[in-house]
């Protein structure tokens, strides 16, 4: 996937966690160190004003990617390039602060991410003060009011405490706080998963409106493919730390390549009850501490062969700017085998 003038580029990004037992126990049991490869050589980029979604099941490393991008974790390998600046390179304090102002994060749980002892006004004023965007108190209060109104709350709500709001309203406050430093890029880690569907719709509409008005770019982490279909321009599918498929969202939804992407799409409940033919889903996500050899997906993959067990697949770039990591796609044998399986399952 190559994009002209991306706002965010992630290259060869990995994060390994040391999950070894304590030293003494390791010596006694003669065990080696254990490493959890939470994120393994991930590469993608996001153009200005667009949304890239990362999807996958629990433990696939999508939230770790979000934390790496905003700098809450230090990457083990690779780099995060924000608007041409390598975030890992040496920057002066002042440069770094300038960069930090330009991206913000929205978290999943609007109950845990707002300080319960602060009034909403102070929660939203904090980034304005911290980044020195305004020093004069009148200007600060004007900006707080403006941000509250942007998220369809009223300026008077600033006097209240977070507990006086419902989950959806709290998530609006989180968004207002994120917008207060006038960022260009927001990392959203499952921002609607804790909300009811009707409230989710309000927040998704709000996020799309804000994107249009302010020209924001989003990295949107989610496990819900229907939400992703609605909000994303680009889609990345992760499985056990690896990005198995990435490209324009519409293309992938229309014509998914990687067997795991197909499986995820087939697992979505059929709300319209069309009775479409689906390949049944089998197996579960293995432990990320001891992932399967070769392609991590091979034990669940109906198209796996001996090579998939042995060798981790490299990136194959297809037409339509889609990058896939799959031997079957690379060898061009996937389409035929999918058709065969469809025939079998509809015959059965």
């Amino acid at each position: 996937m190559t994009i002209e003038k991306p706002i965010l580029e992630v290259e060869d990004l990995s994060k390994y966690f040391d999950v070894s037992a304590p030293l003494l126990r390791r010596l006694v049991r003669r065990e080696g160190r254990a490493t959890l490869r939470a994120v393994d050589r991930v590469k993608f980029s996001i153009p200005k004003g667009k949304t890239l979604s990362l999807v996958g099941e629990s433990g696939c490393g999508k939230s770790t990617v979000a934390r790496l991008v905003v700098g809450l974790y230090e990457p083990t390998t690779g780099k995060v390039v924000f608007d041409g600046h390598d975030m890992a390179a040496k920057h002066s304090r002042k440069e770094m602060a300038g960069l930090r102002r330009r991206f913000q994060m929205i978290f999943q749980d609007p109950f845990a991410s707002l300080n319960p002892r602060w009034r909403v006004y102070d929660i939203i004023a904090e980034p304005i003060r911290a980044h020195g965007i305004a020093r004069d108190e009148r200007e600060i209060s004007r900006r707080v009011a403006q941000n509250l109104e942007r998220v369809k709350l009223s300026a008077r709500d600033g006097e209240k405490f977070p507990h006086e709001f419902s989950g959806g309203q709290r998530q609006r406050i989180s968004i207002a706080r994120a917008l207060a430093s006038e960022p260009e890029f927001l990392v959203c880690d499952e921002p609607t998963s804790a909300l009811d569907v009707s409230v989710q719709a309000q927040i998704l509409n709000l996020m799309k409106d804000l994107q249009r008005e302010l020209g924001l770019s989003y990295l949107f982490i989610s496990h819900d493919l229907a939400v992703v279909y609605h909000i994303a321009d680009y889609l990345g599918v992760m499985y056990l730390g690896r990005l198995v498929e990435v490209g324009p969202a519409r293309e992938i939804f229309k014509n998914p390549q990687h067997p795991y992407t197909r499986m995820l799409l087939d697992a979505i409940p059929d709300l319209e009850m069309t009775g479409r033919k689906r390949i049944p889903v089998g197996g579960e996500v293995p432990s990320p501490i001891s992932p399967p050899s070769g392609c991590h997906f091979h034990p669940r993959c109906p198209f796996a062969n001996e090579r998939c067990q042995r060798e981790a697949p490299g990136v194959t770039t297809l037409s339509g700017e889609i990058d896939v990591r799959c031997h079957a796609v690379e060898e061009g044998r996937l389409a035929g085998e999918v058709e065969k399986l469809r025939m079998q399952s509809s015959a059965a």
């Binding site: 569907v197 009707s198 719709a201 309000q202 799309k208 819900d224 279909y229 939804f253």
Partner: peptide, 18 residues
């Protein structure tokens, strides 16, 4: 208000309030 794969909508219809 439920997003559906395959439905291209600019906005989801939403119920105001909670």
């Amino acid at each position: 208000s439920i997003p559906v794969v395959g439905h291209d909508l600019e906005r989801l219809s939403q119920i105001e309030g909670s």
